[in-house]
Design a protein around this nucleic acid. Structure first.
Lengths: 338, 338
DNA sequence: TTGTAAGCGTTATCAT
DNA sequence: ATGATAACGCTTACAA
């Protein structure tokens, strides 16, 4: 029942080869012929069979987006940027989630990608992640988002700088006893977290402040985690007057912890985040905003480049997008009588 | 350079047909043979070519998920549920976003789906949406999420009931002058919004309360919209003592508007939302929670059913998932001296 | 500019 | 239980 290229060819009085060329916009086709073929194809309601096309051409016309999360704001935003670019380029977007918790029964995605996609976009998997390694070993066009890996195309922000700006902001306000809510206790190099930690420490040491290890806590990039981390900081004998949170969502949790203790963000303890989450304006959180959707867009574009130019065409670039400090009510000058 | 089924067949000393059967777990294959084939395939690092398989079998092994939004919480949650089920079923998930704003240059997705996927999952497109209609006319297995359409499989909550519960909650607290923040002024039947509006009005009339049309505002399902809507309500000569918001995010905006006016949610004006957004616990918003990820999961499962059973196997079901009122600080009894 | 025809790598039918 | 082999629907040298 399905219409094939042969039907179109017959109706248009040309060969299937000509139909193929005409419909794909290839050169060396008489415009008259092309129009006729187009019309017949439209009349017959013909749609090309992707499977057949892929089998014959060797290109899949699809790209896999591998992500550890789908529902979280940061990932959704990136995904959104990625999808729009890829859709516009006529590429199929294969959505694949991986659990970062590497259980033994973890099913590997890399093998599935092998003959299925032309390229892979990987969202913030740490460099030591087995899934990521397996994907890179595939040797196909790949772009990383949110982390950089030597020799691989990547799009990130300057995490060191972002954290430094956030921290410097607190320092500028007169704070000296500054806590930090990080993600996890252990993290490899080249991760956003690692870099943000460096930025944090750099800012402190640049200002001649010695960091008290007691002021480091972990919020696992969740609201709840941030709340617990802040609570821990508040129960310290000598609590910080300001806290740098490595994500906005952890800062939300921190805000809540403050309120539970009858404290007010900004007035009693200053709080700054990193992300530029949609909700931060609403919650009056100072933050270092990153162009999240752009991360996705640019990574997608760079991946498309790799695919058309061939993998080995250019040296893979490591694109860094700028961030911006947004000052709101959650940060305020250190008042002397605290 | 790529290994094909022929290489495996040769190495294993069998025909390609046997390899195909063995690897796919079909019956009528000697277990000895199967093991040998499996081993050879593994040794050769053989992966099947999806394109070839699809072309030969006619099945694509993929499902399209069509959504108007990717980055919004509600959609991300659904997507997350959908993806996990589909991934487990070994299906490829094609992510496709459509703009609901039907501009003239709107590119239709329906044609692209035709030979590309085995089924389609559509997220909350209103029944009158052209894209949705075009997709349904394809006649392929389809499941709807968030809206129901006669004759089509769908998974929703009982929106009438959800709104009724939310409104009843306000009434029970003694409120009589109750406003509503809806999405848009015009909406067709069978939409969540339409139903929530009915539930709202029903609850009022059941309680013998006459609804003042002045108390109906529109927040377009965004925070900002909710803020503006609430502001409008607050500037009314006779402002409501409670407001039913058709989404949590609009309620967040409403909260903000209240604060801008020196009012406190719960104490001065009661606010209830619908969704059960992650952030609502944090913001102390009373809400009617819906099992969002489950919506996606169940719709995906029901779509898989349709695909294996054939479209016409069973009457398409309209599944309704339960909701739950969660009372928090944003709603409180009407105090007499307001 | 257009046509011919040989693949592309499976699956499925029909034998054996 | 296994093997031959004809599809599947398109792309792409190569010829004309």
């Amino acid at each position: 029942v399905a219409i094939t290229i042969r039907d179109v060819a017959q109706q248009a009085g040309v060969s299937t080869a000509t139909v193929s060329r005409a419909l794909r916009g290839l050169p060396n086709v008489d415009e008259q012929t092309r129009d006729r073929v187009r019309k017949v194809a439209a009349d017959l309601d013909y749609v090309i069979s992707p499977s057949a096309s892929r089998l014959a051409s060797g290109r899949t016309g699809s790209i896999a987006v591998v992500t550890p999360h789908i529902a979280r704001w940061f990932f959704g935003m990136i995904l959104s940027g990625v999808e729009s670019v890829l859709q516009n380029a006529g590429m199929d977007v294969l959505l694949i989630s991986v659990s970062t918790a590497d259980g033994p029964t973890q099913n590997f995605v890399a093998p599935k990608l092998r003959r299925r996609v032309d390229g892979v976009l990987v969202l913030v998997l740490p460099p030591e992640d087995e899934q990521l390694q397996a994907i890179l070993e595939l040797g196909m066009p790949t772009s990383l988002i949110g982390v950089s890996q030597p020799g691989v195309t990547s799009v990130t922000i300057d995490d060191v700088l972002a954290a430094r700006i956030a921290t410097q902001h607190l320092i500028n306000l007169g704070h000296r006893r500054i806590g930090v809510i990080a993600g996890q206790p252990i993290r490899g190099p080249f991760t956003a977290e690692h870099n943000r930690n460096r930025g944090f420490l750099t800012a402190l040491s640049d200002a001649g402040i010695e960091f008290d290890p007691m002021l480091e806590t972990f919020g696992y990039f969740t609201i709840q985690g941030g709340e617990q981390a802040m609570t821990a900081l508040l129960t310290l004998p000598n609590r910080p007057t300001a806290v740098m949170c490595m994500s906005d969502e952890m800062a939300y949790g921190a805000m809540r912890a403050l309120r539970s203790h009858g404290l007010q963000p900004g007035r009693d303890v200053s709080l700054v985040g990193i992300d530029g989450h949609d909700m931060s304006e609403f919650l009056d959180l100072s933050t270092v905003a990153q162009p999240v959707a752009d991360l996705g867009r640019i990574a997608a574009e760079s991946l498309l480049q790799q695919i058309v130019n061939g993998v080995s065409a250019e040296l893979p670039g490591e694109v860094r997008l700028p961030t911006q400090l947004i000052v709101r009510g959650s940060t305020a000058p250190l008042s002397v009588h605290v």
